[in-house]
Design a protein around this nucleic acid. Structure first.
Length: 519
RNA sequence: CGGGGCGUAGCGCAGCCUGGUAGCGCACUUGACUGGGGGUCAAGGGGUCGCCGGUUCGAGUCCGGCCGCCCCGACCA
């Protein structure tokens, strides 16, 4: 039986060979999404969308548990609304899609053109974010201190006309949630900002098994119009940072431009304090780049569309009914079990494909556990269970009767092992660096033509000056990802709050910041 | 928008220099053989070679123009 030479890994190129191309291939091999005829926009396919739905479900629960309610605001924002907040306009004006007409007519060449007669009095922009339109609503909703706090979230799509796009990481249109809250006091709004950052960090770590560094951004990385922006930053497997969620303290900037005022308990008119916070489908990209390997996607059980896939191995027709019956029974008993907040989701693959095809397809899709059931297994009343975090051929034999207990336990182990693996990678490439030559070496690949994976998170001192920050950016394309006061679960973070000298100008500095190349 | 590269079947590519009427691998369909595995054999389906124009008896190939995509910058969740 001659065989073709199967590739060493299911995904080609590998991460080490060409990380960016590897990412694209994983997205395609796992059938998560594809490019669309619309420039910069993606079609999210069922497997990719199911991951997003799982993220949504968990996050939505966390938002509601912290007192937020969902609502929905218009896709279109009158141009004048955006103009109200000076920094905000400046930040977003460059990347706005603008609607100028409301009707098409036949053009000279037989095509359709905007009807000059149907020009809008005031152009509408497609929301790049909704502070201004939600601010307008809030100004109506808030009259008294008794109306506060106002805690709202919306699940929506937004459009930012980016010049270069990549599936999931930066698309022209993307899906996200944006929380918008208004408070009576600065302290309350600041507390909210911190609380939601904490929700994101908890979600990333406990559900996505993705370690994150949290902290404020520098002024140059701040959300346009915010007083302070906080982020969760994760290290991808190419050691670049991915900003995976943000929480903004907006001060009274948007309350002033939108007129969100209330009468306090003393009958004095006050401006509200607002916040906003969001995560997007970029999290799917983060998930891929945190866990996927050279055989494709690897899904943390908590957000996997299916926890387990089962398929039959037939040898002759006489054992088929027994195999199918065994599969039905195993699937039914597993579905009665739970993992986390969800029932165990079992995919039964009865397609008429070869077993090898199925195996590799589900490996590439990242399903946590794979079970095959053949005549031998029916006879022995046990099945081989393969874990996605182990080599494809490694299997554990589990008796039928033990499976409903064993599967949730294995899922928990797998969730934990992905977390540990990701944490280990991050810590291996996070280091305190105090000299500029060492810093430069850390962020400079050995091969200039074909840069190898290099760098990571450098914990270095910064004097706080924008000049030093931009110097580093110009020299090395390295930016300050955030200014953490601690990094949970990280051994390397104990030097964060030491005194030292700025990596650029040698002025005194009271703490280290996280420098990295980023997406 | 600046610099570079590329558009040939669903995906990955060869053919272009030296014009002669389209091919390879994978995938797909059918059948047989297989059977704890991305197997073997056979027979098939699928392409106005990015678009428009020019040169020529003849253009995927040569020339001109346009469009799109990718990579490197600038911008960014």
């Amino acid at each position: 039986m001659a065989k073709n030479n199967p590739p060493k890994s299911a995904i080609s190129p590998t991460r080490a060979e060409d990380y960016a191309e590897w990412f694209q291939q994983v997205v395609r091999a796992a059938d998560l999404a594809e490019t669309s005829p619309v420039r910069g926009c993606m079609v999210i396919k069922p497997w990719g969308y199911a991951i997003w739905e799982n993220m949504q479900r968990v996050l939505d629960g966390m938002f509601k548990a912290t007192g937020h309610k969902n609502a929905y605001f218009p896709l279109f924002i009158p141009l004048s609304f955006l103009e109200k907040e000076a920094e905000h306009v400046e930040g977003f004006a460059k990347e706005c899609a603008v609607v100028t007409h409301h009707r098409l007519v036949a053009g000279k060449d037989g095509g359709l053109v905007p009807d000059p007669e149907a020009k809008l009095e005031e152009p509408l922009i497609v929301r790049p974010t909704s502070e201004t339109i939600i601010g307008a609503a809030f100004s109506q909703w808030v009259q008294s201190y008794r109306d506060l706090p106002l805690l709202i979230n919306q699940w929506a799509n937004v459009v930012r006309w980016e010049l270069r796009t990549r599936l999931f990481l930066r698309t022209t249109e993307f899906l996200w949630q944006e929380g918008h809250t208004a408070h009576a006091t600065q302290a309350e709004a600041e507390e909210e900002t911190a609380k939601m950052l904490g929700v994101y960090a908890t979600f990333a770590e406990q559900y996505l098994a993705m370690p994150v560094v949290t902290g404020p951004k520098t002024a140059s990385e701040r959300f346009p119009g915010a007083v302070e922006t906080f982020a969760i930053e994760a290290m991808m497997q190419d050691r670049k940072a991915l900003q995976s969620g943000t929480s903004h303290f907006l001060g009274q900037n948007f309350a002033a431009s939108s007129g969100i005022r209330f009468l306090d308990a003393e009958g004095k008119q006050q401006l509200a304090w607002t916040t906003s916070w969001g995560v997007s489908t970029r999290l799917v990209g983060a998930l891929i780049m945190t866990h996927a390997d050279d055989d494709g996607l690897v899904l943390p059980p908590h957000v996997a569309p299916a926890h387990v896939v089962i398929w039959p191995v037939f040898r002759g027709d006489d054992t088929k009914p027994a195999i199918l019956a065994a599969i039905a029974e195993l699937a039914a008993s597993l579905r009665q079990r739970r993992f986390g907040e969800r029932s165990i989701e079992v995919e039964v693959d009865l397609r008429d494909n070869s077993g090898g095809d199925k195996q590799w397809e589900w490996i590439k899709k990242g399903v946590p556990l794979r079970i095959e059931v053949g005549p031998r297994d029916v006879t022995s009343a046990s099945v081989p269970v393969a874990r996605r975090d182990r080599p494809p051929k490694e299997k554990e034999i589990v008796p039928f009767a033990a499976l409903p207990e064993r599967v949730p336990a294995l899922l928990a182990e797998l969730q934990q092992s992905l977390w540990e693996r990701a944490l280990k990678l991050r810590d291996a490439h996070t280091q305190a660096i105090d000299s500029r030559p060492e810093f430069d070496a850390f962020f400079t690949p050995k091969s200039a033509e074909r840069p190898e994976i290099h760098g990571g998170f450098a914990l270095s001192h910064w004097c706080g000056s924008p000049g030093c920050e931009s110097q580093i950016k110009d020299d090395l394309k390295v930016t300050i990802r955030c200014i953490p006061t601690q990094i949970a679960d990280s051994a390397g973070a104990k030097h964060l709050l030491e005194n030292g000298e700025c990596i650029v100008c040698k002025q005194p500095s009271k703490q280290r910041v996280v420098f990295a190349k980023s997406y």
